[in-house]
Amino acid sequence: MTVNTETTYEVVCRLDQIEREGGVTALVGGEAVAVIRTFDDQVHALSNYDPYSRASVLARGIVGTRTVDGEDVPFVASPMHKQAFDLRTGQCLDDPTVTVATYDVRVVDGVVEVGPRRA
């Protein structure tokens, strides 16, 4: 693997290695990160760690949309107990007090790169 030192983006995989509405787990900076691709080919990265079950599993959850205040929110549901997390913000849709970390992510020439953890 390559580590792009200037930008601290890490190459993770090719986009076509992630299924639509599926996810992969990547090791980024020593941490497990769920990299998820939505139906419209947006790619999101969030911590793979599900704070409810305390297990590293979110990349294995079901991806879909939920209507919140009239807007279609893309989410992943934890495969353990089904809590849904907003893919864009890491916000738990079932409990406003819980959030998981998210990461910057980009697709360059069909290659997915994960950047630093967002504040």
Binding site: C13, Q17, V24, T25, A32, V35, N48, R54, A55, S56
Partner: peptide
């Protein structure tokens, strides 16, 4: 890991119970 297929997930660890493995809990990632 898609980018590190040989590395086991460090979030998973085990302890011993009655001579077999049992899941060990972690406080965070």
């Amino acid at each position: 890991f898609v980018n590190a297929p040989g590395v086991p997930d460090p979030n998973i660890s085990f302890r011993d119970e009655r001579g077999q493995i049992a899941p060990a809990d972690n406080e965070g990632p």
